[in-house]
Amino acid sequence: MAEKYISRSSAIAARMLGGEMMVMSAVDSTFFTLNEVASAIWQAADGRTPLSEIVASKICREFDVDRERAQRGADRFVDELSQHGILLVSEQPIMDFSSSPGNQ
């Protein structure tokens, strides 16, 4: 299965409050509140670190969850946010954020 690289779109507004990350799309105003696990993935979405590595190093190490279950949850989370243009997903490292479609 191909590796996934994720990065945060610049067409969003986000703020951490009380351990939860609030994220809103500036394009369609969709609003998400991310729990601690999702917030950890969100903050690690630098476009260079593979999702599997984020799951291993950030999720499995810091939360009480097995690798397979954490990966499934991360995949679902990434799919949902990418459908709203909030996360950008690629099979290659995402180096140039400004040229991505989500940054218009």
Partner: peptide
């Protein structure tokens, strides 16, 4: 206007 929507969120 995404820029203004971001301002409103803030």
């Amino acid at each position: 206007d995404p820029a203004l929507v971001k301002l409103l969120f803030q």
